[in-house]
Write a protein that binds this DNA or RNA. Structure first.
Length: 908
RNA sequence: GCCCGGAUGGUGGAAUGGUAGACACGCAGGACUUAAAAUCCUGUGACCAUUGCGGUUGUGCGGGUUCAAGUCCCGCUCCGGGUACCA
């Protein structure tokens, strides 16, 4: 028997467990289990629904560190969008998988002997668990893993297609190699010439390439990975140049298609610009300079052939093929030393404007075709082999870096453009070649009797046209479009990557495997260490390596593996039909789901991944394998999430666990000195890494999701602030307590103000989801909750509507409230509430009345009032008289339902 | 150097050329509590005035367009990211 007070306490306890507490841990577990058991997010098989939406995340590399708070940012955004689209009646494809080849698993294998596949599996398990705990609505039946042979079989299959495709420049289209016409003079020259010709057309080719080699990682680095100081981005050690046989892909052939395809895409303009700049199209001309005393010519690319008369010297890159031939004996040692020194510098280092120009004279001269003048040929490392022809003509009078070089080495400077400057002294200096003039001007000093060309007095456009036509007529030059984009180096000397389905035969022939032989599996190895010479670890797999064909010809498998890009170039296609055994995917499904409607990921992939992926997609499109020309219709880049970090007066970083806050200031607990709070990338060394697991256990997954969306616009860089999580946690707690309390839910007619607020909220949230403005959507829901709490009660219909619009953001709480409202099953497929315009109509508007642009008072008037009436009412107001004072009205602006502005002229 | 972003209270941020600072954090005060936490209520750009009404100023800096500018234009500064002596 209990006494009275005990009974009361017990009652309160029950009430609290029923509706007073926001018990997120139980709620989230319960609904995650429900979704899993009921396969709630299984992708619909019905391909007749015309409304489809393919929502894709950039799939993660499953690192050993587990999920980072940066991951859920994009994942939550796509999840909200997916859940919203389901409620809008769309068939939604929203998958997740693992980009699991890569260096860390291999390095771990080197250290411990653990096979990378084991490490990878463990990491994937951790990632999957963490992602599931966030309540993300992925169809786990569509999970893929790039290291799974069922997956990389098709990566190899695509490689074979790249190998067997050539680009028809006339049609601007990739075509099967069997459709390549061999020119007669080539077929006459024998089998070798024919196969060389075919090889020169394939999109994938094998060639000796000079590459950056990191001796520490024993890996070739892409140019993009070499840092300013010549060190490797990944490990920080110095890299060096090395010649290795490499697989290359001819991506520049698709430059025009990659450029024009972007016009119709709904991508951020900044990202499109970055891709355009990376492709780097420039129009100009190629001009041949003959070399004095040798039967050779050097071709240069220039965007300004009109400045040929100002070309007073020529520069070739140290790696230029003719450098040795051109160099005279007396200059040979200096040139050789220079080439050696240049080979140790990174491109960034070589091309840094702030650095002192270096170069050596070859001892040889070239002939300027416009005036037959002899101009010296220099070698300088600021000219790169990768761009243009690896040789330039220098016009020092009108190019600052050529000018600097010419001044330093005392080379002639000839001004050929009339400078448009008012200062006569400055003009004199420029014309005399003592100062550089980089703007345009009418040509001077630009004619020659011996060649008959004269462009003096012409403007830039006319000059370019005239010179180019003249060069073409003399067959010493031609108009040319040049691209910055280079062939893509597509092989790595690694173990943990897709093996190339390629055999090198003893007679020199290179063949690809037959489709039936795929997948070509990785051999099991005991040693994962690559050779010091640049040999891949696969060279250790002696049994796997050697092959013999039917006629007894011996061959060796390719030992390079594909880069990590390979698997991520086409994964969005496999998600469509991941278990397909005998084809890459079912074409009917591909036609239904493609293109990807929304693709969200980090801006760090703005260029490389997205460009490579678009390139593969276009090849597959040309071959009729996919049905769309572009893979991703709409792209969005989330901004990085940073964290607070601390530094002392000298700028030295202080570990976050050594910092305490007192009265808004921060102190180093070890030294007692004050430190400054800054915002920096999360890193182990700063001890400012936020683990999503900790946030989930403290506040719940819904709070983590909501906070990541509430922090600010999705695309900006923003710092994580633990205090901020409390704000959204409070909101969810209030929501839970308010809507789960039966006393607050009434039947009958809804209060007009609440209805109005509710429909405003539906409209705002809907528009904001479409535009990915999740922060303001959440704020709109907070405003509604504040209103509802002020009013104290809402109808069941209102509760039902609010629960549904909240559910894409906080799905666990959404489901819980939905079931408390008496619904038996998930709200995933419940219809998105419609907006009733009746509630949004206003009868009055509170006009801000301003005088000379400054708002002075407010006046409520009917919305449909005529302008004249409004003016009359405003001027009749006592307060207007005060602000008019003694001034006279010169104008009155009335913007209906917006503002009234009275312009006053002050009387003296 | 060039390209792309960005700069709004103590903090994160809001604002179709039309009331700057929504929403939230933090802070201050109050209620509840033995107390604390939690929760709820009120206030909160700065300056001046204050009994009350209120006034001045304010979106990195300097100009401009406009009846009206955080927003558009021109010129800068600083910060972040990318990066090719790109000929």
């Amino acid at each position: 028997m209990k006494n009275k007070s005990e009974i009361i306490t017990a009652k309160i306890d029950i009430l609290q467990t029923v509706y007073m507490d926001y018990n997120f841990t139980d709620i989230e577990k319960k609904w995650q289990n429900y979704w899993e058991d009921n396969k709630t997010f299984k992708t619909p098989d019905d391909l007749t629904n015309p409304r489809k939406c393919y929502v894709l995340d950039m799939f993660p590399y499953p690192s050993g560190a587990g999920l980072h708070v940066g991951h859920p940012e994009g994942y939550t955004a796509t999840d909200i969008y997916s859940r919203y689209k389901r409620m809008k009646g769309y068939n939604v494809l929203h998958p997740m998988g693992w980009d699991a080849f890569g260096l860390p698993a291999e390095q771990y294998a080197l250290q411990t002997g653990t096979h990378p596949s084991i490490t990878t599996k463990n990491n994937c398990d951790t990632f999957r668990r963490q992602i599931k705990e966030l309540g993300l609505s992925y169809d786990w039946g569509k999970e893929i893993n790039t290291t799974d042979p069922h997956y990389f079989k098709w990566t190899q299959w695509i490689f074979i297609r790249l190998f067997n495709t050539w680009f028809d420049e006339k049609l601007q289209k990739g075509r099967p190699i069997s459709e390549l016409t061999i020119p007669e003079e080539i077929s006459k020259s024998g089998e070798k010439a024919v196969s060389d010709y075919i090889g020169s057309k394939r999109l994938a080719y094998y060639e000796n390439a000079q590459v950056w080699w990191c001796p520490s990682c024993r890996i070739v680095c892409a140019n993009e990975e070499v840092l300013y100081d010549g060190s490797h981005e990944k490990c920080g050690n110095k890299v060096e140049k090395k010649n290795l046989k490499q697989w290359m892909l001819r991506i520049p052939l698709y430059a025009e298609r990659l450029l024009s395809g972007m016009d119709q895409l709904n991508w951020p303009e900044g990202i499109k610009d970055m891709q355009r700049n990376w492709i780097g199209r420039s129009t100009g001309a190629e001009v041949d300079f003959s070399v004095d005393g040798l039967n050779e010519k050097i071709t240069v690319f220039t965007t300004r052939p009109d400045t040929l008369f100002g070309a007073t010297y020529m520069v070739i890159a140290p790696e230029y093929p003719l450098t040795k031939l051109i160099t005279t004996d007396e200059n040979r040692k200096a040139v050789n030393d220079y080439i050696k020194a240049a080979s140790l510098k990174s491109d960034l280092d070589r091309t840094d404007l702030a650095k002192e120009k270096t170069g050596v004279f070859t001892g040889r001269y070239a002939i300027n075709p416009v005036n037959h003048k002899k101009i010296p040929i220099w070698v300088a490392d600021y000219v790169l082999t990768g761009y243009g022809t690896g040789a330039i003509m220098a016009v020092p009078a009108h190019d600052t870096r050529d000018f600097e070089f010419a001044e330093k080495f005392n080379l002639p400077i000839v001004c050929i453009q009339d400078p448009d400057v008012s200062d006569p002294d400055q003009k004199k200096k420029i014309v005399a070649g003592k100062e550089c003039w980089t703007e345009d001007g009418k040509y001077i000093n630009s004619s020659d009797k011996s060649t008959g060309i004269d462009i003096n007095g012409l403007s830039k456009e006319a000059g370019i046209t005239k010179i180019t036509t003249w060069l073409e007529s003399k067959s010493i030059g031609k108009a040319k479009i040049n691209y910055k984009l280079r062939d893509w180096l597509f092989s790595r000397q690694r173990y943990w990557g897709e093996p190339f389905p390629v055999i090198h035969w003893e007679d020199g022939e290179i063949t690809v495997l037959d489709e039936k032989e795929l997948p070509l599996l990785l051999p099991d190895l005991e040693k994962y260490l690559p050779g010091e010479t640049g040999e891949s670890p696969l060279a250790n797999a002696t049994e796997w390596l050697s092959v013999t064909d039917k006629s007894g010809r011996k061959g060796r498998r390719e030992t390079n593996t594909m880069p990590q890009w390979a698997g991520s170039c086409w994964y969005y296609l496999r998600f469509i039909d991941p278990s397909s055994k005998h084809q890459i995917f079912d074409p009917a499904k591909e036609r239904y789901w493609m293109p990807v409607d929304l693709y969200i990921g980090g801006a760090e992939h703005a260029v490389l991944h997205l460009l490579y992926s678009r390139f593969w997609h276009k090849v597959l499109f040309d071959l009729g394998i996919v049905s769309t020309d572009e893979p991703y219709t709409r792209l969005f880049n989330q901004g990085m999430i940073l964290a607070f970090a601390y530094e002392n007066e000298t700028g030295a970083k202080v570990s976050a666990d050594l910092v305490e806050e007192r009265n808004g200031k921060f102190y180093n607990t070890a030294t007692g000195t004050e430190v400054r709070q800054i915002v920096a990338k999360m890193s182990k060394s700063l001890k400012n890494v936020i683990n999503p697991d900790d946030v989930v256990s403290k506040y719940g997954a819904d709070s983590l999701r909501l906070y990541e969306m509430f922090m600010g616009p999705l695309d900006i860089i923003k710092p994580w602030d633990d205090k901020g999580v409390k704000g959204v946690f409070n909101f969810l707690g209030r929501t839970c307590r308010f809507f789960s309390n039966p006393e607050n839910i009434i039947s009958g007619e809804e209060d007009w103000e609440i209805s109005k607020g509710l429909h405003q909220t539906i409209r705002k949230v809907e528009g904001d989801i479409e535009n990915l403005h999740f922060n303001t959507a959440i704020s709109a829901m907070m405003i509604f909750l504040n209103l509802a709490m002020k009013k104290g009660r809402v109808t069941k219909d209102t509760a039902s509507v609010f629960t549904r619009i909240l559910s894409p953001f906080a799905p666990h709480l959404g489901e819980e409230l939905w079931s408390l409202l008496g619904n038996g099953k998930t709200l995933t497929y419940e219809p998105w509430p419609g907006v009733n315009e009746e509630f949004l109509k206003e009868s009055v508007f509170e006009y801000p009345v301003s005088f000379n642009g400054k708002v002075r008072f407010k006046l409520e008037l009917p919305v449909n009032m005529e302008k004249e009436e409004i003016i009359k009412n405003v001027l009749a107001d006592e307060r207007a008289k005060k602000w008019l004072g003694t001034g006279s009205i010169s104008n009155i602006i009335v913007v209906p339902n917006r503002i009234v502005n009275i312009v006053i002229k002050t009387n003296p």
